[in-house]
Design a protein around this nucleic acid. Structure first.
Lengths: 384, 384
DNA sequence: CTGAAAGCGCTAACAA
DNA sequence: TTGTTAGCGCTTTCAG
């Protein structure tokens, strides 16, 4: 029963060709050609959105959904014929398992969360990449959160991960994190946590870091061997373990060569660019200006170098500089930056490896601490 | 009633000290010491892991779970007293909503997926960061996938996102992607897709890119105005739209100033470091060596510069270089690299904005194309 | 204003 | 080997 779209009558309608594949009609009363409105399409649309479920497959094959479920996995108790039929029908109907449902029933999301302070230097993305590779290989997704170096955001991130029922968490803390309840919450619910890079002393969880102490020791030793004697250190924020370790390496290198440790040659930097410039200025303005600086990381070292260049201080002859972490910029700057290389992607891979083991082993897992080796890369900025 | 773990008798058991904090027993019959198996611990474990649900809250308050659900949201039909009580109890029991369950019932995961070719230059992480900020603000999580420039991986990524029922997808394709069924699959299920940077011509979806043509035009024009006349172009892979657009800008700039377009001054680079070096060599080895090169991006430009330095070619006097994308390294290299800046974070933000609108509007959404402006940053590498 | 009940898509005993 | 059933935690009609 076709109604005219204008007069709603049915008596004066006749077919009149097709337009864009659709039947066209003609109403003699209104003298109007029309095609049917799109309402049916709405259903098609819904249909369009519908993703096939195991029930769809079951119905199509006239079997139960459990059988379908079994066929879709490597379950032994399944007739190979049935299995083949299911697999084919799944293909035909373009079946995509609903991982949300699966996660719900299994209480396992196959997702791990990563919280990093930021995203812009090459450091954290590389770690994430490493972690992601390992995770993907094991069938895990990764949800990434940035705390933006804000404690509050970090707490929010943790809640999001919790609400998403991640199976495990990789985290590098903000420089201002001093309370850890939000992280302990994971443990409380049996969700393993692995710290990397910026770890938490007071928690008994797995940790992955590089041998900051040794790296710093080697770096400063290198400077000493190159004849520098008045060596300063731009350190990181005191709250971070890596700061203390690198500082320790610096101090012990001096001690090893019987050089005095001078308080005023150590300045702490919060790692922001602005603060890095300030620290650089502070050191370069000293009456007894240091003849070399070991920097907590490359971005800081680069700021220092730029600042020194501005003042026409010759590098490396008047000022030796060593950084930490081997960022790409350090390679192209002139003079090229001597730096302590960390196996960045390895940090991510190791952390993810440990986390996956922790997830697998559940309660039986014993936290471990992994310390990765650093390598001194000697370039121009420290040779004299 | 303690049973021996071997003979299951109870009559011959006596306590016998403790081991690792647990009571130890002795069975005279078996002459065996034992501690109780771990079963009770299993319960404790479950208890530990158990996350409180709305049912827990309902039971504690002796109301129905529907009421709890209503109280937890801004539902009008709810007694403020009840609501307060629920909220307090939720707090007390440390309730964390299970987003998996919610997603399942709402058929909405509040998650968007991002597929990027790689993760290492500062470019994609920055975009992701921008997108993530926008998404987070709207309550969306982000699942990130790397295709590693591999078509096969990209397809796998797409399936993962589909299986995770993401509400929308942001994608920048691999340089080898030529079929798009895996992306069309999203559309088929009503999941909006927004391309960015490396977009797909043949799909009618939203796209965010920068004005590559104009950026390239300005770059080459700048070189011409600085007196360079034999200007080459290291282009990207022909499959990418951005390659064609930047090439178009290059060509039209030449035309505008009546300079000849010479085929052999255009070399295509697949964007890998190795290939970049090769392209650089090819150009620098020409008998009629170009006096300037416009490069498809900064990493390529930097490889070219390093290669030129090796040969003691003076930059910018003997060779002008302009890059594209303003990577950090370009700022510190000497001479500093002239480049076309793209509003990278904006790309991510815009793409996410568009995607969220598309998600919100559903069927009514009309795909749009956004082209962001580029800025020429003039530094030392192109001034003569 | 509140409760009961159905159902999102899936897995996993338990029967048959 | 397969089907039946219950339930993961939540939202959402539909009745009170």
């Amino acid at each position: 029963m076709i109604k005219c779209t204008r007069c709603s009558q049915v008596h004066a309608i006749s077919k009149s060709g097709t337009v864009r594949g659709k039947q066209r009609y003609y109403c003699k009363d209104c003298n109007m050609y029309f095609t049917l409105p799109e309402e049916p399409a709405a259903e098609i649309r819904q249909h369009k959105k519908h993703m096939t479920t195991i029930v769809d497959i079951a119905k199509a094959l006239n079997i139960s959904k459990s059988t379908v479920s079994r066929a879709l996995h490597e379950h032994s108790d399944i007739n190979p014929q049935t299995k083949a039929a299911v697999l084919e029908m799944a293909q035909q109907l373009d079946y995509q398992p609903n991982l949300l449902a699966k996660s719900l029933v299994k209480s396992k999301s196959n997702t791990i969360g990563i919280i990093v302070p930021e995203f812009l230097t090459y450091f954290f993305p590389t770690i994430i990449m490493g972690a992601q590779q390992v995770a993907a290989q094991a069938g895990y997704n990764v949800i990434i959160c940035q705390s933006q170096e804000s404690y509050k955001t970090e707490v929010a991130n943790a809640n999001i991960l919790l609400a998403n029922r991640v199976d495990g968490v990789l985290i590098s803390m903000t420089r201002e994190t001093k309370k850890f309840d939000h992280i302990k919450a994971f443990e409380k619910h049996g969700i393993p946590v692995v710290f990397f890079n910026r770890v938490c002393d007071e928690m008994n969880t797995s940790k992955v870091l590089v041998n900051d102490y040794e790296g710093a020791l080697k770096a400063v030793e290198h400077l000493i061997k190159n004849g520098y004697r008045n060596i300063a250190h731009i350190a990181g924020p005191p709250s971070l373990l890596l700061t203390r370790n690198r500082l320790g390496g610096y101090r012990d290198a001096l001690k090893k060569y019987n050089l005095p440790f001078k308080e005023d040659l150590v300045v702490h930097c919060n790692l922001s660019k602005k603060d890095a410039v300030q620290c650089a200025e502070q050191l370069l303005n000293m009456k007894n200006r240091p003849d070399a600086v070991f920097c907590v990381n490359d971005p800081v070292a680069i700021q220092l170098m730029l600042e020194a260049k501005k003042r026409k201080i010759k590098i490396p002859s008047e000022l030796g500089i060593v950084g930490f972490s081997n960022e790409p910029s350090g390679e192209v700057i002139e003079p090229a930056l001597t730096t302590v290389q960390q196996p960045v992607a390895d940090i991510g891979r190791s952390a993810a490896d440990i986390l996956l083991t922790a997830i697998k082993q559940g309660e039986d897992y014993v936290p471990e601490m992994k310390s990765l080796k650093t390598t001194l890369i000697v370039r121009e900025s420290s040779k004299r």
